[in-house]
Design a protein around this nucleic acid. Sequence first.
DNA 1: TGAAAACTGTACCGGCGGTACAGGAGGGGA
DNA 2: TCCCCTCCTGTACCGCCGGTACAGTTTTCA
Lengths: 222, 222
Amino acid sequence: MRKGEETRTRILDVAEAAVLQKGFGGTSIEELIAETGITKSGFFYHFRDKNELAKALLNRYIENDERIYDEIFNRARELTGDPLQSFLIGLKLLSELLSDLPNGHPGCLVAGICYYERLFDREIQEINRNAVLAWRRRFGRMIRDIVAVYPLREPVDVDQLADMVSSVLEGGIVLSKTLKEPNTLAEQVLMLRTFVKMLFLPVAEMPKASSGSAFHGGAEPH
Amino acid sequence: MRKGEETRTRILDVAEAAVLQKGFGGTSIEELIAETGITKSGFFYHFRDKNELAKALLNRYIENDERIYDEIFNRARELTGDPLQSFLIGLKLLSELLSDLPNGHPGCLVAGICYYERLFDREIQEINRNAVLAWRRRFGRMIRDIVAVYPLREPVDVDQLADMVSSVLEGGIVLSKTLKEPNTLAEQVLMLRTFVKMLFLPVAEMPKASSGSAFHGGAEPH
DNA sequence: TGAAAACTGTACCGGCGGTACAGGAGGGGA
DNA sequence: TCCCCTCCTGTACCGCCGGTACAGTTTTCA
């Protein structure tokens, strides 16, 4: 019983890394058993087929993901009672965590599976869907707490704003991976933070209309 | 010469739909030739291997993508000379185009390939990277035009703001696909539009602090 | 009309997902 | 001590797939 769990975990570890680099279709079972040092029969003892491996992988990934968000935003809530401030602090902590990843974000399994869709059964697609809905509920809850205290400066739908957090994270991961710029993801989260700040806080008075060109980014001569 | 191009295009059409539904690894060449009504030899006459198919597919996708953006934002520029207004109109047009897609957005090949990464050669990864950099340049150019006229109400980096457009699009596609809610993508683009608006325009005066709960979204009893 | 372009047909290879099944090591409870 | 259960190994096999090789055929158009 103990030994079995350990082997199973080792397979999942190897599989997760492989799937995030090559997708499900690009990851062969033979390659997984080679790296885990197990036989093919051993693999199929733990997982009936590739679909069940995907399911286990996805469930584990989502669980871990939720745990991380819980930690970050609970920590943020410990630091202040104000719902807006704790949300903003949470986003800051999240961006720091993301920029501390040594090789950049490895990729999101939810997105990976969404781009592999048709080869999995309805159950997996449902698990994936529920994970995204859980994000919507999580961030929606926090935003509703804010709205109860701060007036919204522009008419936006709370659930859509909650989805924006997921959008920017998923999109930021794609950009970061494609550009091979690990920092892009963290920067995008901070941009979202700026948006949230502007939606609920009065803008600081303009310092002196210095006509544009103040906050330009890197040079882009082309 | 003419006939060859036509067959090639037909293969690419079939392949694009398949790849967006199942990923590259999940798409078999045999399945492509079956649907195109061509033989295996015929397929390999047009494409040396799967990698070259991917390259052609990606290049065509990016080209088409650029064309669509050109059309939308040129059209927006025809409607007004003001850089901010034309950008906002462009985003509105984009969201309308996205919400008019009958079955929702089919998925972005750039993201699909980014999640399949390791199985392609450096060249493809470079094409992908350049596509994202082109988006950054495109939106960055428009934002710089705005910044030259309107003061930024919060200190944000222009390139990071430009990347936010790509982030929200890519993330919105993932959310839309996973949730099977075609509208989510268009809504996310409009959220981004609100952000851009707030960054450059003074906020409308608050109507009367009716203490929150004004713009709540759908009920979320959990 | 003739050469090049655009294929078809056939045969083959090795890798992969998956199945089937027999058997064995090791530990824990009766 | 014995037996059973968990956790594997080993072997053999199937059919699909990506890819190669190459000879031959039809279509196109200059």
